[in-house]
Amino acid sequence: MNDTKHIWRVFLLVLIAIAAFMVGRLLFVPKTFGQFGHYRAANVLEQRAFPVKYQGAESCEPCHADEFALWKNAGHKTIVCEDCHAPYDSHIKNDEKFADMEINRTADFCLRCHQKLTARPEKFPQVNAIEHLAEFKMELTDTVCFKCHGPHDPTPKDPIDKTVTPKTIKELKPK
C-alpha cells in the first residue's frame, strides 16, 4: 500500500511541475510568439512601424520644382537628392519645414565618386583632381567644383559661379 502512496506523490510532483511550467510559459512567453513560427509575430509589425526617412526625389518636387526639373534632365539624374542633401525627415515633419536642409558642398564629397580610382569602371567619368584643376590653374578648395559644374546639372554650362561659362572654360583650358 505504501508503494501506491509513493507513486501518487511522484505523480503529484510531476503534475505540479507541469502546471508550473504552463504558468511560467503563460507569464514569460510573449503573446504572439509562435503564431507564425518560432518567433514573436508582433515584432513584424514593430519592424514595419519603423519611421521612413528617405522619401526619394519626388518628395522634393512640390517645393523645389526648378531644381527638380534641372536635375531630372541632366547627368546627375540617377543620384537621388537625399544623397547630397540630407534625408527628407531631417527637413520636413508633418508636411512642414522644421529645419534647414543640410548641404554638402565640399570638393571632397564630389571626389567620392569622381576621384580617379583603378577600381572604378573605366567608362565612369573620373578625374585626378589635382591635375584636372591644374589644367584650369585652380587649386583644390571646397566648392571649387561648382565653379564650373553645377551640382544638379554637372555638364559645364550651368555653374554656380556665373563668371565661369563654357566659353571661359575653353579659354582657361590649355591648348
Binding site: Q47, R48, V52, Y54, G56, C113, F124
Partner: peptide, 22 residues
C-alpha cells in the same frame, strides 16, 4: 532588414534608392 519598414510600404530599401549607378 532590407529596410523592412520601407519595402512593406512599397518603397525600395534605402541603399537601392541611394545608389547612383543602379
Amino acid at each position: 532588414t532590407w529596410c523592412y519598414h520601407r519595402i512593406t510600404k512599397g518603397l525600395k530599401p534605402a541603399c537601392v534608392l541611394a545608389c547612383p549607378r543602379g
